[in-house]
C-alpha cells in the first residue's frame, strides 16, 4: 500500500508539522486558560443553550443601532438578554428577562469575577459595567442554594 509517493507525502507533512510547531505553537497562556477552565464546571444545573443571536442575522434584518438580543433555552426556563454598550463604550449593559416570569437571583459570571442582581416578579433584571468578553448567567429560583439554570458561555 505504501508507494514512494506516500512516503514522500509523509516526509513532507512531518517537515511541515515541525515547522508549524516552531512558528505557530499553541500560546502557553491559552493552554493555561484551557487547563483552568475546569474550575467553571457546574453540576446539577440545567444548561440553557444559546439558540438565537441577533448579531448573526443577515444585515437586511439588523440595524446598526438595534441592541443585540441573545436567547438561551432550556427545559427550566428561557432567558432573553439585550446587550448594549455602556456610555463610553468600554463596558457592557444587560437587560434581561426570564420566561416563565418569576423572581430569581441572577449571577453574571465573567472570567474576572461575577455580579449578582435580583430579577423582579416579572423576571426582569438589569446590570451595567460588565467587562467585554465571555460571560454566562446562573439563575437561582425560590431561594435555592445552588443555581438551577446556567447559560452557555457567550462573548459580549
Amino acid at each position: 500500500m505504501s508507494s514512494p509517493d506516500d512516503t514522500n507525502d509523509r516526509e513532507l507533512l512531518e517537515a511541515l508539522g515541525a515547522v508549524l510547531d516552531e512558528i505557530d505553537p499553541v500560546p502557553e497562556f491559552l493552554a493555561d486558560a484551557a487547563r483552568m477552565s475546569l474550575s467553571w464546571r457546574t453540576v446539577d444545573a440545567e444548561l440553557a443553550e444559546l439558540t438565537a443571536d441577533s448579531a448573526l442575522e443577515g444585515p437586511a434584518v439588523r440595524s446598526a443601532r438595534a441592541p443585540r438580543m441573545l436567547t438561551f433555552d432550556s427545559d427550566v426556563a428561557t432567558v432573553v438578554i439585550e446587550v448594549t454598550a455602556d456610555v463610553g463604550g468600554a463596558t457592557r449593559q444587560l437587560l434581561g428577562q426570564i420566561l416563565h416570569p418569576r423572581p430569581a437571583e441572577v449571577q453574571i459570571r465573567h472570567l474576572g469575577g461575577s455580579v449578582t442582581v435580583s430579577a423582579d416578579e416579572h423576571g426582569r433584571f438589569r446590570v451595567a459595567g460588565l467587562p467585554p468578553g465571555l460571560i454566562r448567567l446562573a439563575c437561582r429560583f425560590g431561594g435555592a442554594a445552588q443555581p438551577q439554570l446556567i447559560t452557555s458561555w457567550v462573548t459580549i
Partner: peptide, 12 residues
C-alpha cells in the same frame, strides 16, 4: 477567544 470558548464548551 475561540480557543478559550471551545474548552469552556467542553467543560459544559
Amino acid at each position: 477567544d475561540v480557543f478559550q470558548t471551545t474548552w469552556l464548551r467542553l467543560v459544559e
